[in-house]
Design a protein around this nucleic acid. Sequence first.
DNA 1: GTACAATGTGACCTGCCAGTCATATCCCCT
DNA 2: AGGGGATATGACTGGCAGGTCACATTGTAC
Lengths: 208, 208
Amino acid sequence: MPKATFFNLPDEKRERIIDLAVGEFERLPYDKASVNRIVRDSGIAKGSFYQYFEDKLDLYTYVIHLIVEEKLKYLSPLLGNSENEGFFKVIEALFKSGIQFAVEHPRYVNISKIFMADTASPIYAGVVKANLHKSHEIYRQLISQGIERGELRSDLDVDFLAHLMTDMNYSVVDYVKKIRGNILDESLVDFLRGFLSYLEKGIGNPQE
Amino acid sequence: MPKATFFNLPDEKRERIIDLAVGEFERLPYDKASVNRIVRDSGIAKGSFYQYFEDKLDLYTYVIHLIVEEKLKYLSPLLGNSENEGFFKVIEALFKSGIQFAVEHPRYVNISKIFMADTASPIYAGVVKANLHKSHEIYRQLISQGIERGELRSDLDVDFLAHLMTDMNYSVVDYVKKIRGNILDESLVDFLRGFLSYLEKGIGNPQE
DNA sequence: GTACAATGTGACCTGCCAGTCATATCCCCT
DNA sequence: AGGGGATATGACTGGCAGGTCACATTGTAC
């Protein structure tokens, strides 16, 4: 966590620093990101930076913290009352919120992508593994619940499917970002319904 | 490409250098990988290294080249006669060969993962994008073919599905590596069949 | 106005990096 | 034996990194 001095800063200055830091971390992995550059571009002295943060890792951890916090704002409404909704409805809502987050916070998504891929980063093991584990657990629960209710086939490999769906979540968000642009209209809902029908009924031709 | 001098080296020495380089690149992204370390650990002089390779990028590119070459050995037998086989048979073979490659060349897979994630690497745009595009194209063709033959639903979003299957390929390989260990017996075939049935028939309960 | 704490500053430190080059050694051909 | 091209060597250069520190400036309370 940044030092008290950082939070005493005028909003404008504090936000400028974070803005520059986000700009740096969305371009470069932790080790290549440069405190020198952030400091130069945001017009503060090198010494001042170290009055605000313990070190480079402190800044990075704080930015990740901001991202996780923001992401939770999108997810928390969904995780409360999932028991009363059908499996595919919950999945639709989950994927939709993921896309919404990506559209509204593209820079955060860039950082997350670099972050999650950067196994050499000093906090990878702690944060990424923990979050992937959480995500995996959520899917495990939803799938088990879906099987109990008879919504899903009973012969599913729950663990594998949870893994697959975690990855598919990223894949879908990625595809929407790359190919379909940042449009958040009802065509997106149709797109998601299409995906869900692949998931539910498969892509094979039932006539055969 | 390495200089002629490198290929004139005694096999043992040449292989030791590549072995150390692979060890370095499977641990660290391009920019953090250190020529100094490779040189020190393999017991050759710094100056000698630059008699063998133009620069660090030359070595890296060569290692990637070796990986791609090896990967093609696994893939090329499959891509020739895909027209006579059913869609799901071809997919099964593709995924199986991916797993086989991962089991037999775990270090190569580590390098590939870091490589593909490292968008800051100087050859990312050229090699990774080109390969992803190729993979995407192969899936597009297979899917289109599958639709024409009536094996697949006719309302599929071919582009999206190609994207999804490219990612699922990695996801499945990843899962097998992480969770199921490096066992390459018939249980793997069962596992793959399970996955294919999710893909073909979906995970929903057909009774409902 | 003065005392004192909080904040700001940039030259400087050490460490690691990729890459160079003058020099030494090796090895083969005559 | 000796000449010459190929190969080996490691001290050295310049650049950039993260982090430090003695000192300057500002803000506050009396």
